[in-house]
Design a protein around this nucleic acid. Structure first.
Lengths: 237, 237
DNA sequence: TTCGGCTAAATTGTATACGATATTCTGCAC
DNA sequence: GTGCAGAATATCGTATACAATTTAGCCGAA
């Protein structure tokens, strides 16, 4: 037995296996849209890129497929996920379903310092919206998602937090594919409104705003079948 | 390009890689409680058991760890998950959070034949409750979960369905660990009540019953810290 | 006897190797 | 020039091999 083992071993030794790092790196690249949907992720290429063997590359890609960020096709390889309009609808349906509940749990437990932290995020988000350049845009995308993720974190439910991780990441893919307005994270002010509602303990209003916010994002999508895949397919029907 | 590729490729070629089969087999064993929480799952042993190499065994165990059914500890190996009381609470909190929403979506889309299918499940469940023996008990456990899973399937949201898969499977682990009453799936009649409420289109009542049902399962748990781990740890504090 | 460290066995982490499947290219017939 | 058959290439699926870490057993000293 480990001599240092106490009753509550919270996070134990992190840093896990090297595959985790590769997974995180690729995930970041996908979420920040440096990798476009449909991009092929060959095991050899990934391995070479990170200077590891195909074994680790494969493990990382498998992990990402469990999160729905890459789709692996048997004997064909892994690709950055290309969510169908139907998948996109389901992702947002799931968010509408769970986010109000998460919000309620979070609001019930939130501490003043956590509210401060949320406001800090909002400030950062606003700052990024003003800046120019690719890197700022990428940071903005991530910050926009971080708001929802932080809320999930405050709720204290690790399972819901993991689920939200997945939903937010996949949402980023959907927006990259079907988003219309150039402004990626349209509803920055909406985040602020939600925090304000939480702060004055108006939960019903906060939930209403959250649903409105999600609907707002979804309204910016053009979910008609196959944006530009057709030509031939258009005549096959 | 695949000549047979149509606009909507629903399930594509299944049967995937062999690791999937092993994963499913082990998952079934865990959910049906043939494998107890904490049991060590060595890669070699798993590989030998299924007559495959460690590579596939490892892949299967990794997959199961993403579902929260096994926990892999670095350089130490994989074990059937041993959810802490806190984790157990979070699992059921998550179910309380999502199941009413799933129920509402399912009820909105349900067809008469699907209602019939649900009733069929209930009948089967009832039949198993009457029988004796280990195998019947295991089938009963699975049937109890299948009710919730079928509901998620009817909702038509694949993402929520996968999430419920995970939650139900982990619930089985929690009940195995902390359940008190010998009757595993206590609330069989509650399932019937829910279906009845759906049938007469009383959604509010159906949700109420669902929440009651989940609370009922949770009430049967003894979630005090560390049932029988202590002796030494008890004195270290 | 008990505690400590040391060695040996077992197990995991990672890389490489080989066979199977899919994709691409070439060449020939029409 | 077009279309199809077959080989060559690339990529994935799985097994095996080796290195690193942990676990256990053992022996000696206090």
């Amino acid at each position: 037995m480990k001599s240092t083992a106490t009753a509550l071993q919270i996070a134990e030794d992190s840093a896990e296996t090297g595959a985790q790092q590769i997974r995180d790196a690729i995930r970041d690249a996908i979420v920040e849209r440096r990798l476009s949907p449909g991009t092929k992720l060959s095991e050899s290429d990934v391995g070479n890129l990170f200077n590891v063997s195909r074994t680790l590359a494969r493990a990382a890609l498998q992990a990402l497929s469990y999160e729905g960020l890459v789709s692996v096709e048997k004997n064909r390889g892994a690709f950055v996920a290309y969510p169908s309009p139907e998948e996109a609808r389901q992702i947002f349906a799931a968010r509408r379903l769970v986010e109000p509940g998460i919000l309620r749990e979070a609001a019930a437990k939130i501490t003043p310092s956590q509210i401060q932290h949320l406001k800090q995020l909002l400030l950062e988000e606003g700052r990024l919206m003003g800046e120019r350049g690719q890197t700022a845009r990428r940071a903005e995308i991530k910050a926009s998602g971080d708001f929802h993720l932080t809320l999930a974190g405050i709720s204290g439910n690790a399972i819901m937090q993991r689920f939200m991780d997945e939903l937010v990441a996949r949402s980023s893919l959907v927006i990259a594919l079907y988003g219309q307005s150039t402004i990626s994270s349209c509803g920055h002010s909406e985040h602020g409104d939600i925090v304000a509602a939480i702060e004055r303990n108006d939960l019903d209003e906060a939930c209403r705003l959250m649903l409105h916010h999600i609907a707002h994002i979804e309204a910016d999508l053009d979910l008609r079948e196959h944006k530009s895949v057709g030509l031939k397919e258009a005549f096959e029907l």
